[in-house]
Structures are given as C-alpha cells and as structure tokens.
Amino acid sequence: MAFLESPRFPDKIAFGAVVGPVYSTVVTTATGGAESRVITWSQARNRYDVGRRVMNQSDTDALYAFFRSVKGRGHGFRLKDWTDYTVTAANGALVTTSAAGVFQLAKQYIAGTLSEARNIRKPVAGTAVLYRNGTPISAGAGAGQYALDTTTGLATFVADSSASISAIALGSATQVTLSSALAGVAVGGLLSLSGLSGADAGVLNGQSFTVSGVAGAVYTLAVSTVGKIITSSGTGSKYPQPSDVLAWSGQFDVPVRFDTDDMKMQIVDRNGPSGDLLVDWGSIQLIEIRT
C-alpha cells in the first residue's frame, strides 16, 4: 500500500463526480424514542462517485488505465474536487501542532457560531501563499520565513529570533534564563526550547510553552519539571505567537482511494463515423483517506 503523489486522478473525469461529505455517528434509540448520538469523527471524509454515466473512448481509456495502475483499492492518490479546491485568506487557517514552529494547513467552514477546521494535507505545489497578520510571508531559510511540505500540508517556520539558554530552574513552573531577551515574547506568549540535555530533556525539547512571567531575559513557563533531570545548554526561540494571525490561500487536492476492487463497464454505442466507443460505467466510488 502506498500513496501516489502523481499522477493525479484525471481532472476531466473528476469534474463530473457526484460529491458529498460523510460522517460517522453512533445513534442509540431508547424504547421511548429518545436518542443519544456520539460523533466518532471530528472531520468528514468525502465520498465521490466518478461513474454513473456514459464516457467516450478517451475518458474510458484514461479511467481504465488509472484503475489498473493504482490496483483498485490498493493505493491512494490525489483528486481535484471541483466543488471545493480553493482556500482564501479569509478561510485558510494554520493550526498549531505539537512541534515548535510547525503548523498544519487547514480550511475553516463556518456556519454562524459553529465551525469545522478541515486539515489540508495535499496543497497543490506552487499555489500556496502564507500570511502573517495580513502580510504575505516569503518561503525560505531566513528569520520568520517557512518551508511547506506539499505531501503533508505542514508549514515549518524559521524562528524569528533565538538565544542560548544560560540557566534553567526546574519545578512546578519552569524558569529559563536566556543570554538575551527575545523581543515580542510576553506573558501569554510562547517560548520554544531545543537542545537541552539530561535524562528528561525530551519533556521540553522541540516544544513550545506558554509564558507566565517575564523578567528581563528570565522566562517562567507553565510546565512542570518537578523531579526531572534536565540541564541547560540549549536554545530558546520565538516563533509565531498566539497574538499573530496566520492564514493561507491557494489550491488543494483530496487524498482518496477507489472504494472498490471491482469495476464494470458496458459498451452502449459507437460515436458516429469515427467509431469511438461509448461506454456506460456503473457506480465507481472513491473515498477520502486520512494521510
């Protein structure tokens, strides 16, 4: 089993797909008719039907070859969902992850006070633009810039600024002293740590922590290190802060697979003097997959 970044499912055939999101809900009905419902998926999986129509010879050949190439349900691949493939700065969000400076591209769907943030893991290369407080950000290796992995939708930022850790005091709150203060890291902000040593250094390394106090270059972090063995010699870094508004715009594909290993087609006619076949395809289902 593999995910094939290329080729993408033929766009011309995808254009005519029947599309819809699918959720998973466990409904229990009591004898009196009252219901309890448990939502088991936080995000929908889209389902597509690319069959249920007559296709000409070239489209038939393309679909037939693609189905054989991905081995039916065997491999995942990209699909352009013509009903929903763009993101604007108004609904494109960047969601924090557990790794410092790494954000997941997402799209916000809003209905009144309700919303769902859909993870976008397959942005289309060359289309994404990231914004910080309304200003486009450049991709690159400079301070505050980023690198985007178009196979995962993860944007990894370069730190705005960094300073070496000269001391660390462990306890119910952890106090970190830097060689110099980092401008813009205030109470309620985030300080990211890396390079610390000791048996329990993994508790802090590669993560960001909320700052509960600042005194010059001394930062108190809301993380308990009671009983831990961690020694200074690492680095404190500033990445985008909670006060920053991060957004993105661009295009994205949906990761899918065929939901059948059995494809059926029937010749229904020839297309005029050229003799091209017209082929009737039954229901051919695709289902969105988690990657």
Results as ranks from 00 to 15, higher is better:
T29H: 13
Y146K: 04
A169C: 11
L182H: 13
G142I: 02
D49C: 08
V223Y: 14
G33C: 06
T40E: 13
Y48I: 00
A14C: 06
A2R: 11
I289T: 06
F258D: 08
V211I: 12
R132K: 13
I230W: 10
A155D: 11
Y23I: 02
G142A: 05
T225K: 10
D59W: 00
M263R: 10
K122V: 04
M55V: 01
Q266P: 02
A183E: 00
V185L: 01
K12R: 12
T220K: 14
V102A: 08
P242H: 04
R78Q: 14
S243D: 01
L4Y: 05
G33Q: 15
N133I: 06
T156W: 09
A62V: 00
V87N: 10
G234I: 00
K238S: 04
A44G: 15
Q175H: 05
I110V: 10
Q43C: 11
L286R: 12
M1S: 08
V245D: 05
Q145F: 05
P21F: 06
A159T: 04
I230N: 02
A159C: 02
D253S: 06
T60E: 14
A143S: 06
E116I: 02
L105E: 15
F252L: 07
A141K: 05
A89C: 15
L191E: 11
F258I: 13
S161Q: 03
Y219N: 11
N133T: 15
F9G: 00
V50N: 10
R118A: 03
L105R: 13
S162Q: 04
A167V: 00
W41L: 05
R45F: 11
L246Y: 15
R257V: 15
F157Y: 04
T86K: 09
L204C: 10
A17H: 07
A34H: 12
S224V: 03
A65P: 06
A143I: 01
D253A: 07
V158A: 09
Y239C: 14
F252T: 05
K122T: 07
A111G: 09
G272S: 14
G213F: 14
G184P: 00
L221D: 03
G189N: 13
V19S: 12
G206T: 04
P240C: 09
D59L: 05
S24H: 01
R47T: 13
G74W: 00
